[in-house]
């Protein structure tokens, strides 16, 4: 009995190892890895992501697991990404979770929800210096969302429904 379990485990491990050599599966593994390894930025590293000029529409949402309205609207951003990723739309979820909860809250949340959008974590206490650089009118409440494409840019300090989100995205789609 025990040896058969070991055999199955070995088989699975072998399969996984071989899968890694397959290029397509290697990419899947990258995503899985991304879910366990957080990309933690200070604002200096985050800022370039907010000001790219590569003809892509970026939907950037500031959120946190402790923010109920953020968690509520998160599926809409996921749906938006699923429905528009082929139309040059990239969704980036910028988590403002607290460092002491990265392991206990954020990572399990990302795994459970199986989030597909790109996730980066912003850890920068000097919010008074970086909030105005995101948008001069932002008071600092979350959720907050930027949609931009090259030099066209909109900022929303509000919650969204899926329809509202799609509506504002359409202003950027040609």
């Amino acid at each position: 009995m025990k040896s058969s379990v070991i055999r199955i485990v070995l088989l699975v491990v072998t399969f996984l190892v071989f899968s890694c050599f397959n290029k397509k599966n290697a990419k899947v593994l990258d995503n899985a890895e991304q879910k366990t390894e957080l990309e933690i930025y200070d604002f200096e590293r985050l800022e370039p992501i907010l000001y790219k000029e590569d003809n892509t529409i970026y939907v950037i949402n500031f959120w946190a697991t402790w923010c109920a309205p953020c968690v509520k609207e998160l599926p809409y951003f996921e749906d938006l990404y699923a429905n528009y990723k082929d139309k040059n739309v990239e969704v980036i979820l910028v988590s403002l979770d607290f460092p002491h909860q990265y392991e206990s809250k954020l990572k399990p949340f990302i795994k459970e929800r199986d989030l597909k959008s790109k996730i980066v974590v912003l850890d920068d206490v000097d919010s008074n210096s970086w909030i105005p650089k995101v948008n001069k009118d932002w008071s600092g409440s979350i959720p907050a969302t930027i949609i931009y494409k090259d030099n066209k840019r909109q900022f929303y300090e509000q919650s969204f429904t899926y329809n509202e989100l799609e509506e504002v995205l359409k202003e950027f789609l040609n």
Partner: peptide, 10 residues
Amino acid sequence: ETKAIGCTIK
């Protein structure tokens, strides 16, 4: 005036 992250007033 300063800015900080906080929870939206519900």
